[in-house]
Simulated assay, not measured.
Amino acid sequence: MYRHLLVPIDGTDLSTETSSNAIDFARTLGAHITFFHAQPDYAAALDGEAEIVRLTSPAKFAYTYEWRVRELLAKAEAAARAFGVPCGSMTAVSDSPARAIIAAARDAACDLIYMASHGRRSSIGMMLGSQTLKVLVNAGMPVLVSATSNPPVPSQVLDVIRDEHRSLAAVLHAWLNLLDAERDAGGAADAELMRTMIHYLKTFSATVHRPKESEYLFSRLRRRSSRYDVDLAELDEQNADHQRLIAELEAAVERHLAGAAPLADVREAVASCERSTWEHMEQVEGRILPGALNHLTPEDWDGIATAFGEGGDPRFRRDMGNEFRQIFSRIVNLAPADGAA
């Protein structure tokens, strides 16, 4: 039985689905996951788009070609932790993703590579992408290929919900790592950063994530089936409890900054919020999302997708989310990672 999976993830919109499928698979096996990202050596390139971006917009270059990697891995790790799957992550700079994937699997002593293929389907089945095919031919160990190309509208909608879950969980875990690093170094907590994290947790959840779930997904599921009424009522209670925990966290931060409470109180409050987020993820992703797939109609999914898109609900437009993306990126890139598996 496989005990340690290497799961390569990339920067495409399919990375959420790939990591979710791998986590489900690892959970059934009781296996460990090492998430891996191979990044081209943009810094060594003397021409091309990356060099143009680096010269004209250093901040954009840092995000697109450097910070984005940590975001991808942080979200994947957050999902694995939420579902009780032990995990770690690795990165490598390489212009040959297939070779880098194989080398990482061997270095981490993995016994299975679980990867997606973005190849198209034909009349005779799936056409593997070139990198996937190279891994299959040269790995020298079992490779499980998950076909994730051209996801249907319901999958696209559910990946939005999953991705937001992972963002919230990743911020909380990054906060714990920052607090532990500050404690070990004997330094003082960054007041501005902690207040920024509180702002993210409160505002992103209230203005972006919860409306998508409650006003669009949950409301349609209630109309289509009464089977999930108890679960949805529990989620309402859970949400109220989570808001209470966030308020307690904010109060703990302010008490600490005023010198009236130790940093350990802040850490315990963050940990409580993380556990609450995990419970929400497990309830929604384990029960509600499968129920939605069973009961919602194509018209329902199209309506939700439209609301989530650029021309839909103005709360969810990309330009409205720039602040949240910047905050998320700053937090997960400032925090020390858990380390390689």
Results as ranks from 00 to 15, higher is better:
residue 184 D to N: 15
residue 115 M to S: 04
residue 234 E to M: 14
residue 331 I to F: 08
residue 7 V to K: 07
residue 231 D to S: 13
residue 75 K to F: 02
residue 40 P to G: 01
residue 27 R to E: 04
residue 49 E to P: 04
residue 296 L to W: 03
residue 323 E to P: 02
residue 196 T to M: 15
residue 154 P to A: 03
residue 221 L to H: 00
residue 219 S to W: 00
residue 118 H to I: 04
residue 98 A to V: 04
residue 235 L to W: 07
residue 158 L to D: 01
residue 318 R to K: 10
residue 93 V to Q: 13
residue 120 R to F: 10
residue 20 S to I: 04
residue 107 D to G: 11
residue 326 Q to S: 12
residue 192 E to M: 13
residue 315 R to G: 04
residue 35 F to R: 00
residue 164 E to I: 01
residue 323 E to T: 11
residue 189 A to V: 14
residue 299 E to N: 07
residue 157 V to E: 04
residue 175 W to N: 09
residue 219 S to F: 00
residue 142 P to W: 06
residue 241 D to R: 15
residue 244 R to E: 14
residue 306 T to M: 10
residue 283 Q to V: 11
residue 25 F to S: 04
residue 17 E to N: 09
residue 215 E to Y: 00
residue 334 L to E: 14
residue 53 V to F: 04
residue 127 M to H: 10
residue 183 R to C: 09
residue 278 W to E: 10
residue 4 H to R: 15
residue 16 T to V: 14
residue 43 A to K: 11
residue 142 P to E: 13
residue 29 L to T: 02
residue 251 A to E: 07
residue 204 F to D: 02
residue 8 P to S: 07
residue 218 F to Y: 09
residue 99 R to F: 11
residue 188 A to D: 14
residue 202 K to N: 08
residue 149 S to C: 10
residue 254 E to R: 05
residue 94 S to A: 14
residue 331 I to A: 08
residue 329 S to F: 03
residue 192 E to G: 14
residue 177 N to M: 15
residue 231 D to T: 12
residue 21 N to Q: 13
residue 44 A to S: 13
residue 24 D to A: 11
residue 94 S to D: 15
residue 199 H to A: 11
residue 327 I to T: 09
residue 178 L to W: 11
residue 11 G to W: 05
residue 271 A to S: 08
residue 42 Y to N: 00
residue 257 L to F: 08
residue 60 K to S: 13
residue 20 S to M: 05
residue 19 S to Q: 04
residue 203 T to M: 10
residue 179 L to V: 15
residue 204 F to K: 06
residue 77 E to H: 06
residue 187 G to W: 08
residue 132 T to R: 06
residue 105 A to G: 11
residue 299 E to I: 05
residue 128 L to P: 01
residue 190 D to N: 15
